[in-house]
Design a binder for these strands. Structure first.
Lengths: 337, 337
DNA sequence: CCCACCTAGGACAGCTCCCGTCCTACTTCC
DNA sequence: GGAAGTAGGACGGGAGCTGTCCTAGGTGGG
């Protein structure tokens, strides 16, 4: 058996731990001489993985950042943590890396041992605490199934609930996954309709690859992203908010969460104007409500209406409830600690 | 040079792609005969990585889920996606895997090429759109620095802003990172004070490992988690909410986001009671406000007060803005649309 | 039904590479 | 200066790897 390859992999695994390993310890662990360790280190370096060595007493080896990604050797818990992290981000879309996120997730889930997969499942469902806001969130599993089918040029079968509510069976040749706004779309060639279609991933269920491989087709558009945007115009329902916030621009920008939220332009030392990035009403409303600052909404009217409805709900919830006689001893005026 | 080890790694990388590879194609890519490919596959299997082969025409090899995690071979974009995902989850804490999350992140960032690190940085800051809520979020970089120092038994230097506001310099021997509630704490032996201390990670800045290694000390407590909970009693400021929500239990539970949010107990077909998990006022308020359902808060009084303040702010923001001043014509009794 | 295409694996010859044991050189911290 | 670490050349024996044969078995399409 390939003794030395296994040892190299093992060595790589040890060196990825964020600590320094003296050669003698490595030699003891891998049951070879220190000379062999030195040669292994040399080999790793030749393979492009920069093993950094600190000289002198208290020295040792560790893997440094190089020009290419070395193979990541994860223990069980780390693998689960990564899977959970990817599922939570992939489900909600992060600007710029949606597709890579799904690819990485598909790659990981393909090799994830069954017992770990279960843990990811239970943890994963327990961690969708983001305001569901825009409606149903996407099941990360659907994304990975579709991504795998796309990479493998396999036909996919699934059930699809169109806007109206009719449930249909589809057989398609998947072409690409596209994240637009806060939604995922599948661009595919529908074999029954004999034409290209786009599907909202949150509306499809029970997708599975049929195993039938097909020749790749050419999409009648420059790229899939443009195709989706073109077809989905009007359905997206995102809004750009303009609001004045009474607080220092720097602090407000920080609380709104970086550049992705939109632009904050200072008016004077104590107020600023927020031009939001396009987003759903729910998210825009939530961001403003959670700011902890006074604000005024200028646009759009829908946001004002939404906020007003929310404010009314909150008032009704706190003003009386079923019986005010539920005796709240400390009184409602006491500020919280 | 170790030709065959490199080839094995390469092969592993190809097999991780979610598609099937016929042996001839692999042979062409790796510039060896198909016989060697078969031998390489055999080697991988001996190393414990289950290479699944489908027979017949249209057959091929692919890596299946086994009992241990194989080394993950990621391309640049996938690595960035994972780093971004981990940073966003590590910064906010996910129940049960906080520590593994940070370990995985430390491992990845240790070997992440510089150009990718930059991309992670820009994407990472652009994606903290969660309601900052509980105050300052933790810089994931601080977590990785501390985790690495802990693993390596190295002293760490940083600046610390205590509650009052005085900025002090600290030199400590880090012992463990603990996630409690929505916060990260560092348990460490303070070399200047000559005693154990806990630090809130969101309040420290510019941490760096000094490179000086020390012998591990024994914490005067059963485990670090208990130690932190003991010391931080009272400072945590988390609350458990009890509220009635007027909507079907199933739907409400789904929107609240799984088990982690607390327990939803049906009252009748159209209402239910929510006993929340302990959380900050901001999050509890946000969850309720974003439900899109009528609700009544029973406990705690602080949450009622917080919600009322928020409702008032929202009303002021939407009712008239600058012109309508304080006049609230329709009053608070009008049900929202 | 048979053929094409795939995986699976034994035998063998040739040759490369790998390992352990020596050895010396250099750096760093105590 | 000494101890402990990395760095690396020389060498001999042995293990492992590769390509070229070969046969066996599974699967799907014409």
């Amino acid at each position: 058996m390939s003794e030395t390859s296994a040892r190299l992999l093992n060595l790589l695994s040890l060196l990825q731990t964020p600590r320094e390993w003296p050669g003698r310890e490595l030699a003891a662990r891998l049951r070879v001489t220190t000379r062999t360790i030195r040669r292994d280190v040399e080999r790793l370096r030749e393979l492009g993985y920069p093993v950094h060595a600190s000289m002198g007493a208290e020295g040792g080896y560790r893997l440094a950042a190089g020009t290419a990604m070395p193979p990541l050797l994860l223990d069980d818990e780390e693998a689960v943590a990564i899977a959970v992290g990817l599922r939570s981000t992939a489900g909600h879309t992060i600007a710029g890396i949606e597709e890579a996120s799904v690819r990485a997730l598909a790659k990981l889930e393909q090799v994830l041992p069954a017992r770990l997969r279960r843990r990811v499942g239970t943890l994963g469902t327990a961690t969708v605490p983001l305001p569901a806001g825009d409606g149903p969130t996407v099941d990360p599993e659907h994304l990975t199934v579709l991504a795998a089918a796309i990479a493998n040029h396999e036909r996919v079968r699934f059930r699809y609930r169109a806007g109206a509510g009719e449930l249909t069976r589809r057989l398609v040749e998947p072409h690409r996954l596209v994240a637009a706004g806060r939604r995922w779309y599948l661009v595919a060639f529908d074999n029954d309709r004999d034409d290209w279609r786009t599907f909202r991933v949150d509306r499809l269920s029970e997708p599975f690859a049929t195993g039938v491989r097909t020749a790749p087709r050419e999409l009648p558009a420059a790229d899939a992203g443009a195709y989706v945007r073109e077809r989905m115009r009007g359905t997206a329902a995102t809004y750009r908010a303009v609001a004045t916030v009474y607080g220092p621009a720097g602090e407000v920008a920080a609380r709104l969460g970086g550049r992705a939220a939109g632009e904050v332009e200072p008016l004077d030392g104590e107020s600023c104007r927020w031009h939001s990035a396009p987003d759903s009403l729910e998210w825009l409303a939530m961001r403003l409500a959670m700011l902890g600052r006074e604000f005024t909404v200028h646009e759009p009217a829908e946001l004002t209406a939404y906020l007003r409805a929310m404010g009314d709900r909150v008032h009704r919830a706190t003003d009386g409830g079923e019986t005010d006689a539920t005796a709240r001893p400390t009184g409602r005026d006491t500020p919280g600690g």
